[in-house]
Nucleic acid binder design. Structure first.
Length: 446
RNA sequence: GGUUCCUUAGCCAAGUUGGUAAGGCAAUUGACUGCAACUCAAUGACCGUUGGUUCAAAUCCGACAGGAACCUCCA
């Protein structure tokens, strides 16, 4: 099996993926808090981890991909109050919207999508174990995690407790033993809440993922844990700390973080009023173009969205599909399709992707294929075997990064239309030829 | 204040272990074409600035300039 190399945020090195179970890879990716439509920042991890999932499957792994929905949160409660409805009405609505968005981005749903509300017993149980083993403490119905109980605290985000304390804001919550301690359970009187040994309340955000991983995956461990760069601290740091406190080992073999997204060189934020929803962008350009743009920059680097990058993406996709369309047409006319691929191109492509998902590098291989394809269909009599292999290879490469394959085939009627056009041309009946050409174009055949 | 990261042609962008820079878009020129479109070919980089290490640096080390993220909810 081809070796997969991925950058691990914790070791700060590119590591070879060594799954705990032979032939199987487990991935957990922090999902959205479903209080609103997903913004384009949420779209990036969809794409990045879907690319990873596709690659792992392509090289032969059995992949278990889990991503949660945070459906208990202050923002959800506030939204429910604002809309005067229940929390679950809010979350149901936005989970559906999120799933639609995923599908429009050609990112299939995860294998499992646990929700906090479904795991409340497990979460309470998990917190309780941390209280019992002394790494968490209870004050007035709240439960806090004791950061000092974990000597490795800071290992994910490369911080030390000293620096964090210096930089910490003045904490209004005087109840905590240490300003860095974070809330695992919070007593609450507003909004939805659950009974617990400590109070009626709800869990803190940082504890849900660990508790769910603990329940879903064996040994409180996943091969790959992913999310946005901004989750490194405090979210992932706190997850890791809880895992250590709970079972004395790391939560994940590889911690992957995708880069952020800027709009015209500015951070996307509500205050700057440059907040773009995923659905709006998809409506404007289509999921394929958006995905192509996201694929064009390495996943760890920030992407800057400008109109120009979308214009470029449209040109690039057009060029590729034009080539595939013409090749398909030529093959279709002579029933020249087979299922072969060019293994040399494919292997080269795979090894680019296997190197920490270097899609840019991989695209050079795709462009090589397209170039050869274009040349090979311009001859009088095409080599169907070769053209087909190139065509299939390009399609396969596109699919690996979540871009649609070209699959259209001509009907007999469409074929005869094409022949009529050729005939008119050879008869030098250009008026008729132009009319037929127009028809072929409007039918998407040319 | 602390911690990271980035700066490669008009634009996007790759560049594991140092050996004089992939690719794409746009542009110009040419070829092909009934006219187009498509396609093919050709044409571009003192790798932010400046010191240093080295036979050799975009790649390592230092300084400077500019930009970004995190340290608080955030993908």
């Amino acid at each position: 099996m081809m070796e997969i190399k991925l950058y691990d945020s914790k070791s700060k090195k590119i590591e070879v993926l060594k799954p705990t179970q032979e032939g199987k890879v487990s991935i957990y990716c922090c999902g959205p808090t479903v209080y609103n439509h997903a913004h384009i920042g949420n779209v990036r991890p969809m794409v990045v981890f879907d690319n990873l999932r596709r690659l792992l499957k392509a090289v032969g792994y059995d992949v278990l991909f889990v991503s949660n929905y945070t459906d208990v949160d202050d923002k959800i409660i506030n939204e429910a109050i604002k809309e005067s409805c229940s929390e679950s009405e809010i979350t149901t609505k936005y989970i559906a919207a999120y799933e639609n968005l995923r599908l429009s981005m050609n990112a299939p749903l995860p294998d499992i999508t646990p929700r906090v509300t479904q795991y409340m017993d497990k979460i309470i149980d998990f917190i309780n174990k941390l209280v019992l083993n002394g790494s968490a403490y209870v004050i007035d119905g709240d439960v806090y995690f004791k950061v000092s109980s974990v000597p490795t605290y800071g290992c994910i985000s490369n911080r030390n407790i000293q620096d964090l304390l210096v930089g910490a804001r003045i904490e209004e919550n005087a109840k905590k033993e240490n300003p860095l301690d974070f809330c695992l359970w919070k007593e609450t009187k507003v909004g939805i809440n659950w009974d617990s040994p400590w109070s009626k309340g709800r869990p803190g955000w940082h504890t849900e993922c660990v508790a769910m991983i603990n329940d879903i995956f064996a040994n409180t461990h996943v091969d790959i844990h992913g999310g946005g760069m901004d989750l490194k601290f405090p979210h992932h740091e706190n997850e890791e700390a809880q895992a250590y406190a709970y079972c004395s080992h790391s939560l994940a073999s590889i911690w992957m973080h995708n880069g952020m997204l800027n709009i015209n060189n500015e951070k996307m934020s509500k205050s700057l009023n440059n907040f773009i929803l995923g659905k709006d962008l998809v409506e404007k350009y289509g999921g394929q173009v958006v995905r192509w743009v996201m694929n064009s920059t390495h996943y760890r680097a920030p992407i800057n969205f400008t109109d120009e990058v979308f214009t470029t993406a449209i040109s690039e996709l057009n060029k590729i599909y034009t080539s595939l369309k013409q090749a398909s047409l030529k093959l279709d006319l002579i029933n020249g399709f087979n299922s072969e691929m060019d293994s040399s191109y494919i292997n080269k492509y795979l090894s680019c992707l296997a190197n920490d998902l270097n899609i840019s590098d991989g695209l050079t291989v795709l462009y090589d294929v397209i170039k050869e394809l274009n040349s090979s269909i311009r001859v009088r009599e095409i080599d169907a075997k070769r053209v087909s292999a190139l065509f299939n290879s390009a399609n396969y490469m596109l699919d690996l990064i979540g871009i649609n394959k070209y699959t259209k085939r001509l009907s007999d009627e469409e074929k005869s239309l094409y022949y009529s056009w050729n005939e008119a041309k050879s008869n030098k009946d250009f008026a008729k030829a132009d009319a037929l050409r127009q028809e072929l174009i409007s039918k998407g055949i040319l």
